[in-house]
Amino acid sequence: MNDPHTGFIVASYALTTLVVGGLVLRAVFDHRALRRAIAQLEARGVRRRSARREEAR
């Protein structure tokens, strides 16, 4: 691509990649952290009522 405005095109795609990549990574890391937090709470014996009902069945 030999264009006087290549820098603008590259910057546009780079920014889009950065923002979309950020959204994906945020979703993945958030999910891992939340699952870990729930596992830690359950390991300490704290359970949702519905989970206890399911266990009792």
């Binding site: 939340l34 937090a37 709470l41 359950e42 300490r44 014996g45 704290v46 949702r48 989970a51 206890r52």
Partner: peptide
């Protein structure tokens, strides 16, 4: 996570062992 933490805090406040609780 929020409701489990609130449940745990209430149980600790009341001096109940967390294992007895549920959220």
């Amino acid at each position: 996570v929020r409701s489990l933490r609130l449940m745990e805090a209430e149980q600790l406040d009341a001096g109940v062992e967390p294992a007895a609780g549920a959220a």
